[in-house]
């Protein structure tokens, strides 16, 4: 039986203040962020502006700056901040006993349903 949550491994795989990527066969690649305060967030790895890989941006507070055109995206809501408009899907995530879990239904998306 497979639970609702997908185990993606121990938290120490991600250095604080950085992100790593999680390709999903048949769905969008996911960027998993760990902030300097050790909060964890997961977003689809595509800036709403020109699809830049958010995982490669500079993380500050709970915001990531897209490497292509410096849009600031909220890690909490996926929304573009400031004057920019756009939103990237957020994948519900939890950390339990040192392991990271993503909400399975959000990871595989509609394609897998």
């Amino acid at each position: 039986m497979i639970g609702d949550w997908l185990d993606i491994g121990p938290v120490d795989q991600i250095t604080s203040g950085t992100a790593r990527t999680l390709p999903v066969v048949g769905a969008e690649e996911i960027a998993v962020f760990r902030t300097q305060k050790n909060e964890f967030y997961a977003l689809v790895n595509k800036c709403p502006h020109k699809q830049g890989p958010l995982s490669q941006g500079i993380v500050h507070g709970n915001v990531v700056t897209c490497p292509l055109h410096n849009w600031n995206i909220s890690l909490k809501t996926g929304e573009a901040l400031g004057d920019d408009e756009g939103c990237v899907p957020v994948i519900p995530m939890k950390v339990d006993a040192g392991r990271m879990y993503l909400l399975r239904s959000a990871v595989v998306g509609k394609q897998a349903a």
Partner: peptide, 18 residues
């Protein structure tokens, strides 16, 4: 090396054996 590697790869059941 972390900077260049994916965390993991997800292959949903509907595409392949888990």
């Amino acid at each position: 090396a972390d900077l260049h590697q994916h965390l993991a790869e997800v292959r949903p059941l509907s595409f392949t054996e888990f």
